[in-house]
Design a protein around this nucleic acid. Structure first.
Lengths: 152, 152
DNA sequence: ACAAATGTGGGAAAAAGTGGGGAAATGTGG
DNA sequence: CCACATTTCCCCACTTTTTCCCACATTTGT
């Protein structure tokens, strides 16, 4: 399970270094093999250990290609999915289209979200956090039953 | 179970010393491994022994990432969650974003709240206590059934 | 008032992150 | 099918951050 945000850099060769605290877990989960694709709600990327991604692929596979919305989801998610394997120094290569979708420049945030990571440009992440907290505090959040069950 | 408020200092390396009275319990609960994240209602931090945090993580894991509100909560809580392990002198490192969320400067309050701690800047804590007590005394508090059941 | 325990600060060693040269692999065009 | 260009990978050197450790200050208890 991944958690926490790490500030990392996208270097001139378009690589990011995975923080060491995650590497052991990634090697045992998936020998460093991951899949990166675009997020459909935010300008960020999603990075899954291969086994996790395969479950998602199964679900996508069961969508109907006759339904335009479901087909679109398949196209976007699968079309952008890119195999990423950690190299021997724990780095991943991010390809052009993905980099572009998330507007990644030098400063990047790697955000642990349990079974996956999100990859954000630093500025977009900070904006997301700021507006997120103010939305929650101003009560713009509808408390669903599931949320009420959360006691922090 | 933790209770009471301790005045502690955030030193120049952004560390706080856990008062010794809590250390034994923390070592036996979680070998000093804790998780710190932001509070979503107040400018303070929440510090959980790892096993306690993992229960919350399980609940967060069951939220739907397709629902924007539930996803936002995951992002805020998990994204800010930071593993904190006590070093050999019983100190914890507080990272920049967290320090910032709670506006922590030198004087910090560590507030025991049973299964977790809250971490406040001294001034924010005092303001919270003052206005909290006056709110209660002036009857601005809605007495829910659960509250009526409290006999002090 | 003194001794013991706790809290605080900072130097120094260790670990992690960053950048880039050059080798290997891959792909393209003739 | 080969030569060339491009991309990917491995490795080393450098910088920054984190961790460990010790010494001093402060508080507590006798």
């Amino acid at each position: 399970m991944f958690r926490g945000t790490s500030a990392i850099t996208l270097d001139s060769k378009s690589r990011i270094t995975i923080p060491t605290k995650y590497r052991d877990e990634l090697v045992s989960d998936c020998q460093g093999k991951m899949v990166c694709t675009v997020d459909i709600q935010h300008p960020c990327l999603l990075l899954y250990p291969l086994p996790e991604w395969e479950e998602i692929e199964l679900k996508l596979c069961n969508l109907s290609s006759m339904n335009p919305q479901e087909r679109l989801l398949q196209q976007v998610l699968l079309g952008n999915a890119s195999d990423c394997e950690m190299d021997k120094s724990g780095r991943l290569l991010i390809n052009g289209p993905l980099r572009n979708h998330a507007s990644l420049e030098k400063s990047v945030m790697l955000v642990g979200q349990l079974k996956k990571f999100e990859i954000w440009s630093e500025s977009a992440w900070q904006a997301q956090m700021q507006q997120g907290i103010s939305k929650i505090q101003s009560g713009e959040i509808e408390l669903t039953e599931r949320l009420l069950d959360l006691s922090l």
